[in-house]
């Protein structure tokens, strides 16, 4: 019992400790969160009495939390929709989405039509698109993920049209799912896929519309399926919020952007 009281006392005394630093809260896209976490740390170093807390949970959450005021800044890994024009977006980096298959898969390219048919469940075997006689494992992203929304938009698909075998959440999970299944096809962030390939993970990137899936082609704007990684804020942006957003867009953090395998947008 004494120990219990001591523990309660300890916790209470700890909560007295919170110092009154100015605090910024960011929530949203799990793709963007690790990058912003690092940017936040660098920002804190040059701004002593500021704390920047970065939370995760997906782009939709970033939008909702920013609207409700739970978060000061949201992280959204796509362009804003017309219905979201109450928020202002600031692009901090670019990312491309590429189709990946297992490295043992002999397929070197798929047409737009073929990818569409695979995801609609009309093509069930790799044989029908020039591969071996193995059934296709379709890996799709979960609802609320902006990678899914971009994929749907690019291929002009409706969510219910997709016949998925596996539903995944984060990027790395997609890479691991495809690397572990020779018959799988999926779509993930190109930067993350390039890094995994360089580390010997068993996946390969397929070109899209004849254009090689590479961060280089995302940078020069030739790649058709790319997205901005945005910070979003409600109303007029001023003070600390403005300082942080400008810092995140500046060349001071472009090494951090490259370190997360994204494409930096030089100002």
């Amino acid at each position: 019992m004494l120990k219990l009281l001591a523990l309660v006392g300890f916790t209470l005394s700890l909560s007295q400790f919170s110092f009154s630093a100015e605090k910024l809260v960011l929530t949203g896209s799990s793709t963007v969160a690790p990058l912003l976490g690092e940017i936040a740390k660098r920002f804190e170093k040059s701004h002593n009495d500021v704390r920047v807390d970065v939370q995760t949970g997906g782009s939709s959450r970033g939008i909702a939390d920013t609207r409700q005021g739970v978060a000061d800044i949201g992280m959204v890994s796509r362009a804003l929709k017309p219905s979201e024009k109450d928020l202002t977006a600031f692009t901090v980096a670019m990312d491309g989405i590429g189709m990946i298959v297992h490295s043992s898969n002999p397929i070197e390219k798929l047409t737009q039509e073929q990818i569409l048919n695979i995801y609609k469940g009309k093509v069930k075997s790799w044989k029908n698109v020039g591969g071996p006689d193995k059934s296709v494992t379709v890996v799709n992203k979960a609802e609320g993920r902006s990678t899914l929304e971009l994929f749907l938009k690019h291929f002009q698909l409706k969510p219910y049209e997709i016949k998925a075998s596996v539903i995944i959440g984060d990027n790395e999970q997609g890479i691991k799912t495809v690397a572990g299944n020779p018959n799988a096809i999926g779509y993930v962030s190109i930067g993350a896929a390039e890094f995994s390939i360089s580390q010997g993970v068993n996946i390969k990137l397929l070109p899209l519309n004849g254009i090689v899936s590479s961060t280089e082609n995302v940078r020069n704007g030739r790649f058709p399926l790319s997205r901005p990684l945005n910070l979003v804020a409600k109303g007029e942006v001023s003070g600390l919020k403005k300082q942080f957003i400008e810092f995140a867009k500046s060349s001071e953090v472009s090494d951090l952007v490259r370190d997360q395998y994204f494409v930096s947008v030089e100002q």
Partner: peptide, 26 residues
């Protein structure tokens, strides 16, 4: 970040493992 009070956000070990294996390449 190192929490300085109980009112600070702090990442649990299991969340860290999940993030490293499912969200962070490398």
């Amino acid at each position: 970040r190192m929490p300085s009070s109980l009112l600070d956000s702090g990442r649990a070990l299991s969340v860290h493992i999940y993030d490293l294996s499912m969200n962070i390449s490398g």
